[in-house]
Design a protein around this nucleic acid. Structure first.
Length: 879
RNA sequence: GGGCUUAUAGCGCAGUUGGUUAGCGCGCUUCCUUGACAUGGAAGAGGUCACAGGUUCGAGUCCUGUUAGGCCCACCA
């Protein structure tokens, strides 16, 4: 007999199991023509990252699919890796340097980048180690980093290819500028946030004469860069004024009133100050009217030399002083409260400044078209479906992508400028001389690329692109992408575009988008809010299996996940339940080594099986089928719930209890074989969800390779038997009824009862010998008589089921009044049901319109209930 | 402004094509340390499925509207 502790200890198992898996190469996937590929690329976490619940959810979902498909015999590849996360990482390293009193600028570019690499060496693998603790079965030998050699080559290749196609261009445009990070951002990197702002109404006086035009603005400091005031040409108020000159207050510059359709007559005063260098719309207006933009800010958000009198002041400081000065000059007409949305840097949350600067862009329209088509045609499907619309809406309104960043950490643009003739050379390899003038004085562009410019290549760059590789041929397109909604535009949409552009093939066929992890009050979990539940704490306290099980159990298809620490008890308890059920099996099996692992030998002894045996096999095969189907449809929590219910409620609560006498008493029967078979299949079904505890038990049963590579069970429908299931329902129902009487009448289990079962109809409700035994054992009976002619004694407790009258003769005192009250209450319940049914059946519309089988089913229920109520009444009368 | 999403037992949530006695987990009540498990077992209590209309023989489920949360997108200064 094995020595198995009565409690499952994750701590004693997880680490050793994981290292055994890893060392044995079980995670490794290689192209294999005998198998079908199943591929997932991990959403690469930032190198700066530490595991949070979002990762835990995301990676558990992926691991479930990967493990499940691996067991199904696929060449199941999960490609791991990390993202260099340009701005985020640069910020982190800068901060740590600052603590040592060193600034990035002091260090210089080269040294700084070296520091970042050092930092990555030291901390960059933290999250990988943490993913391992979660049980992630990634092929770690393939771990990639967006800045490693291969992926950097892919970035250069992509850039040059797009540039040569005319899809990358350089130009002066208004972009989102973060004054703190001092870099350009893409539109996606500057999400809008509602801000309580003010609308300042400012009087711009006419050059000649009194009076003037009142403009409204939320950013008065930008007036220093005004080059015109625009009105709508159809606006009667201003029509006559078009072409008149105004004097820009404070600065004194002369500006003209111009007409532009863009201006909304209804907003503000209907007159708009035009600041082309600091507002995208104004920039457009200025272009249309040939006006020269005036830049008034420096990259750090402080006013520049064009801001006479405010030079060097921070933009918000300048705002205050300008408002004050306008007030003094009596040019401030009024200030209104005005809430509006302002873009904020997604890395440091500073309000971004729309800023005119020279940047690099990707033309997106042409790239978007095939990517839209891929989704519209159904080649790529979103789960849940609703994301399709969000995706298409964004893609159809796509704007060019600003890809240059003024930071140091990232892929440097493969762009070189000739110092002499200013030629622009775009090349993967640094050119030796200018291809126009032959000068050897060349300078590489200082900028680096947006982090997402490497991530959008991830599904194929990780497989070797731009080289032609076997991996790529075999594993691409990948099968499914599992990700969070936050990066749908950043990443998912762009990967589809990149796939279509560079590979002429979709990057994945399915996109599963899971919810956001929130705390109990619905807030997003974040460090700054301090509402984090650390997955590692949970793993330490409850085990990785518990974490995985619990988080999946509350993840309904794509809905947000609300977490609290207590929720992880569910998973821990279940792991322990599995452990103990197995413990029972292992302790009691006489010779479990003789039971063939895995497949139950084709049961040619079907007839010899007890009804419980047949029943559990029927339930098992149903479970296998439904779990597999649920997984096929990415219904993770449903799949998990189905195994849970089967294992706990069918297997543990009923089957194990029913076969205990046979197993413990070493009686003749097949239960032993079936116990081990059902246990093994259950472990397999559970393995993708709870890999550690299932492996631990798998090895306890017998030492062998691993459950990871065992075959996923196949449902055999010949085991599904409705008749057997229905008899078992009857048996369970009788047991529950007797237990109910015990409970209601306070009869302890130590008191053995004698029970008479009176079947109703001839032929029906006959119970096999096994069934009688189950009832005797599980209801703790001394004697059970099944007899249509059973004579009910006077002193007796009763229950009435659909198919039986149950009598429990009890000598001595029975409180008749109490028993009567009890039975009447039960009868009332039945009566309530029949009232409802009869109302339906009296309704002609129902009879005429409802399908035949619905009507007859109702009728059958009516007659059954009626009859049951009659028996109940006569039982009550007999008291 | 546009779009998405949620509202079901005290709490957290399931409920796929409309027909179940509306389920599950936690919590609650009563009982039980029985030879896998008290991280357990047994028996219970608890819901007019947000509101108002509509479609239908029949609605938690479909449609319209209302209310209240949440999220995303958007160049009204």
């Amino acid at each position: 007999m094995k020595d198995i502790p009565p409690r499952y200890s994750p701590k004693d198992n997880e680490e050793s199991i994981y290292s055994r898996w890893e060392n044995s190469g079980f995670f490794r996937a290689v192209p294999d023509s005998a198998k079908k590929p199943f591929t997932i690329v991990i959403p690469p976490p930032n190198v700066t990252g530490i595991l949070h619940m979002g990762h835990a959810l995301n990676n558990t979902l992926q691991d479930i699919l990967i493990r499940w498909k691996r067991m199904q015999g696929f060449a199941s590849l999960w490609v791991p890796g990390t993202d260099h996360a340009g701005i985020a990482t640069q910020n982190v390293v800068e901060r740590s340097l600052r603590e040592k009193g060193v600034s990035r600028q002091e260090l210089g570019r080269e040294k700084f980048v070296e520091e970042v690499w050092k930092w990555r060496e030291q901390y960059g693998n933290t999250i990988i180690r943490q993913l391992k603790r979660l049980g992630a079965s990634c092929d770690w030998e393939r771990t990639r980093f967006t800045m490693d050699k291969g992926l950097s080559d892919a970035v250069l290749e992509a850039f040059v290819e797009l540039y040569n196609k005319g899809l990358i261009y350089r130009g002066n445009y208004i972009i989102n500028w973060c004054p703190r990070c001092q870099t350009a951002l893409s539109d996606e990197e500057a999400p809008h946030q509602d801000v309580e702002g003010k609308l300042y109404h400012i009087m711009y006086p006419f050059k000649d004469g009194k009076d003037g035009v009142v403009v409204a603005t939320t950013r008065p400091e930008t007036m220093l860069g005004d080059v015109a005031v625009a009105v709508n040409p159809k606006d009667r108020r201003y029509k006559k004024l078009i072409g008149k000159k105004l004097v820009l207050p404070i600065i004194g510059r002369e500006i003209e009133i111009i007409a532009d359709d863009f201006v909304d007559k209804k907003f503000g005063t209907g007159a708009v100050k035009v600041t082309p260098a600091h507002d995208p719309d104004d920039f457009e207006i200025a272009m249309r009217h040939g006006l020269e933009p005036v830049r008034i800010m420096r990259p750090d958000g402080k006013m520049n030399e064009n801001a006479a009198g405010f030079i060097g002041l921070d933009r918000f400081e300048a705002r205050k002083l300008i408002v004050k000065e306008l007030e003094e000059k009596k040019l401030l007409v009024k200030i209104e409260k005005h809430d509006h949305a302002v873009g904020h840097c997604y890395r440091c949350h500073t309000a971004v400044e729309p800023y005119l600067s020279l940047q690099w862009f990707v033309k997106m329209k042409a790239l978007a078209e095939p990517a839209i088509e891929a989704v519209k045609s159904g080649k790529i499907k979103f789960y849940p479906k609703r994301w399709t619309k969000v995706y298409l809406n964004w893609m159809e309104n796509i704007r060019d992508w600003c890809i240059s960043r003024q930071i140091w950490w990232g892929h440097r643009l493969p762009v070189y400028y000739c110092v002499k003739c200013e030629a622009v050379i775009v090349s993967k390899i640094a050119p030796e001389k200018c291809n126009k003038c032959g000068s050897v004085e060349l300078k590489q562009d200082e900028d680096v690329l947006d982090t997402w410019f490497s991530s959008w290549l991830w599904p194929f760059s990780t497989l070797g692109w731009p080289e032609k590789t076997k991996d790529q041929e075999y594993f691409y397109p990948t099968s499914v992408l599992i990700t969070a909604p936050e990066i749908l535009f950043f990443w998912v949409a762009r990967m589809i575009m990149a796939g279509m552009e560079f590979k002429k093939a979709i990057p994945f066929s399915d996109v599963y988008i899971h919810g956001t992890v929130r705390d109990v009050s619905g807030k997003k979990m974040s460090k700054s809010l301090g509402n984090i539940i650390d997955p590692l704490d949970i793993i330490d306290g409850f085990g990785a299996d518990a974490l995985r099980f619990s988080i999946i159990s509350i993840t309904a298809a794509g809905q947000d996940v609300f977490l609290s620490k207590e929720k992880f008890e569910t998973g821990r308890n279940f792991a322990n339940k599995i452990w103990n059920a197995s413990r029972f099996v292992l302790i009691n099996l006489s010779n479990f080594a003789s039971c063939p692992a895995g497949q139950l030998a084709k049961l040619d002894r079907w007839k010899d099986l007890s009804i419980a045996d047949k029943w559990i096999l029927s339930r098992l095969n149903r479970a296998i089928d439904s779990v597999t189907k649920a997984l096929d449809n990415y219904r993770f929590n449903e799949a998990e719930g189905l195994v849970y219910d089967f294992f706990w409620h069918d297997f543990c609560d009923w089957y194990v209890e029913m076969v205990k006498p046979e197993i413990i008493g070493k009686k003749e029967g097949e239960a032993e074989k079936i116990l081990i078979h059902v246990l093994e299949d259950s472990l397999k079904l559970l393995h993708p969800f709870m890999p550690f505890v299932t492996e631990a038990i798998w090895q306890n049963i017998k030492e062998r390779e691993t459950i990871m590579l065992s075959a996923w069970p196949m449902a055999d429908k010949s085991y599904v038997d409705k008749k057997v299931e229905s008899e078992m329902e009857t048996v369970k129902n009788i047991i529950v009824n007797i237990r109910n009487i015990r409970s209601d009448m306070n009869i302890p289990y130590s008191k053995k009862l004698t029970v008479g079962l009176v079947p109703l109809k001839k032929g029906s409700a006959s119970l096999g010998a096994n069934s009688a035994e189950y009832i005797k054992n599980l209801a703790q009976l001394e004697k059970l008589t099944i007899d249509r002619d059973f004579k009910k004694p006077k002193s007796c407790l009763s229950a009435v089921t659909e198919e039986f009258n149950i009598f429990i003769p009890l000598e001595g005192v029975i409180d008749t009044a109490l028993e009567k009250a009890r039975l009447v209450k039960k009868e009332d319940g039945l009566k309530q049901q029949i009232v409802f049914i009869e109302k339906k059946l009296k309704d002609k519309n129902f009879i005429n319109n409802a399908p035949e089988e619905v009507v007859s089913a109702e009728k059958e229920r009516q007659s059954k209930l009626k009859e049951q109520i009659e028996r109940m009444e006569s039982t009550i009368k007999d008291l």
